[in-house]
Amino acid sequence: MSAAPSATPLEGVLLGLVAYGMWGCFPLYFSLFGSVPAGEILSHRILWSAVFLCLVIALLRRWRPVFEVFRSPVLLGRIALCAALIGSNWWMFIWAVGNHHVIQASLGYYLTPLISVALGTAVLGERFGRLQQLAIAFAVAGIVVQLVYLGELPWISLAMAGTFGCYGLFRKQIPLDSITGLLVETLVLLPVALGALIWSAASGQSNFGAGTGISMLLISSGVLTALPLIAFAAATQRLRLSTLGFLMYLNPTLQLLIAVNLLGEQLAPIQLVVFGMIWIGLLLYTVASLHDSRVRARESA
């Protein structure tokens, strides 16, 4: 899709705020599921996302790219890898909310851009400037501080940042727009999700149909998965990547505020130190990214 001629950066900022704002409020939404297992929620999220995205693709009349993926085993295999990564990330986030680890989840999303930089260096052989290297060093130092003082690694944060960072690394190498890509990913995961839901219903453990409220929540998970992605896709057509990168921090910031102020999680002093070191790293990363984007703009002028 191309941006409308009348599109403005302000519209892009508003769309970006909608996308990241919705993602940032997901802890509140998933906390409504109570004791429903994370696996069941994830299975319904996959199912209803596929249903909703099929409707969106039908309205946009964009089935051809979807069919082309399924005609290419190599491309489908690459999409399947991305699907496994994003599915794992979704499951970990839902589990973190249900088990009162939203602070750790928010730390994971703060770490994601720095993990992406590290992956770019290790996997793609990309070279980064001193500021970006220093940003990674601050993130590593923060993790070491938690390991030394608490005697444990932030496994949830590292796993979420790792799966999402790897997803971004592989996904950006696949020539598919975000909406089509997400539909194919959910279709790849759909047989596993349907199998889990059928087994859950047959064993009498399904929460779907147990009450109107919980059933509507499970169905709505598909819509709420797709809507912020659609807003994000529209924002990318109107904004520079550097602006989107800055807006990205709204997501984990909202999650952190919700965890502490609404969900009753406690932020220990040492965790505040860890977050502080990550925030310094992100500040350095943002400064370096803005500098690089200005250099590229001058070179292309």
Rank of each mutant, 00 (worst) to 15 (best):
V140A: 15
L107K: 10
A122M: 05
I57C: 01
R62I: 01
G142C: 05
F93M: 06
R71N: 10
P113E: 09
F93E: 06
G87D: 02
L114I: 01
I115Q: 14
P65K: 05
A105K: 14
L114Q: 03
L147H: 15
R64H: 12
R127D: 01
M92I: 15
S72L: 04
E126L: 00
S116M: 10
P73G: 00
L85W: 12
G129P: 01
A96L: 11
P113F: 14
L75W: 10
V66E: 01
V69T: 00
V145I: 13
L81P: 03
V66C: 02
R64G: 02
I103W: 10
R78T: 00
Q132C: 02
I86Y: 13
T112V: 14
G108Y: 12
V66K: 11
A84N: 06
I103A: 10
I79F: 08
L124R: 14
V140F: 13
S116R: 09
F67D: 04
L150K: 13
G108E: 03
V145F: 09
V97H: 13
S116H: 14
V140C: 09
A80L: 03
A122E: 02
S72D: 10
A141I: 08
I79V: 15
L85H: 13
W91M: 07
Q104V: 06
W63H: 12
L59I: 02
Q146M: 12
L60Y: 08
R130D: 00
A83E: 01
E126D: 01
I143L: 05
G120F: 03
L81D: 02
L75V: 04
L119F: 15
I115S: 13
F138P: 01
Q146I: 09
V102M: 04
L60Q: 14
R62L: 04
L131D: 02
A137Y: 07
V144K: 11
G98W: 14
I143F: 12
I136A: 00
L124M: 09
A139K: 13
G129K: 03
T112D: 09
A105N: 14
L134W: 07
L85G: 14
H101S: 13
A80D: 02
A118D: 00
F93Y: 15
L85D: 13
